[in-house]
Write a protein that binds this DNA or RNA. Sequence first.
DNA 1: AAGCCCTGCAACCGCCATTCG
DNA 2: TCGAATGGCGGTTGCAGGGCT
Length: 300
Amino acid sequence: MGSMGFHQYFAGLLRCSKSCRLRWTNYLRPGIKRGNFTDHEEKMIIHLQALLGNRWAAIASYLPERTDNDIKNYWNTHLKKKLTMTNNSDSSSPSPSSSANSSISSSTRKSTKPSRGQWERRLQSDIQTARRALSHAISPSSSVHLNHGGGGAGSTYASSADNIARLLKDWMKNKPTSSSAGSKVCDSQSSPSCNDSAESIPIGGGGESVAVELPGRSFNALLGFGFGSGDGASNCSDLSHSGSPVATTKRMFKAEEGCEDVSHPDEASLSLLEKWLLEEGSLTGAVGKHDFFTAVLEMY
DNA sequence: AAGCCCTGCAACCGCCATTCG
DNA sequence: TCGAATGGCGGTTGCAGGGCT
């Protein structure tokens, strides 16, 4: 039983506290939506999985009525299969499972399993990678290398980050220059209110500080800077844990960005993300957001 | 009708982080 | 400060139920 042996078993239930909590959060808790996933939810999961990897708790925070376990099961039993079938039509593409191994998600559980602190560090690393990818994408002449030399998990993400960079590059290339979007400088170090416009994206964890506009949505929302439900995520509402990954990540990003308003009320960030992820045809450019994510998925 | 196979999902496992005394 | 207890997470397993032969 491992560590379970330390947990207290409740008389008559044959369940330890941990098991009870799990059953509550995954099954008994009010507000859990059961049954089939909607197309909307499915898209959310696919897109978020492409962005975040197998971080089901983080993904679940965007789907308040679903538990991480549900999402995980749905991914493993439905979506993985679906994507595999999709990829079979394109034999040159690696399988989805390889994506889970090669991209953000962990390849070896013991070495990369994100417990709280690791989760944050890894997420931070992901964001650094994404930023670099974006930075690389918007400056074609840039020689930014996505490989984090000796960066542990960072090197694991390199291939996917590279892919994203390429996609972004294409995406930006196809984006009409006449659109209201442009780039503006935003020194996150010196101007704490760099997100005064919801459309600006601070890029660069270290030195570079460029802001790019995504079509109507902030990169904060895209990457989950506003990170989900503030009540400690939907999947653990029974516990008020200010130290939850969600909460601490929020704080982390606020501190890192030096921005006051990084984490918005959850519904707000959720809807931003949802809209950004799911809006179809609202993009002025030739390549839609959905196309972008589809392309990302298809690369796996 | 019986046996086999497949699928979906709840629960378990093991690890690490956090809390608490 | 330290160690035990507990929480949280992702991966995996086991089983019930349905479909097929």
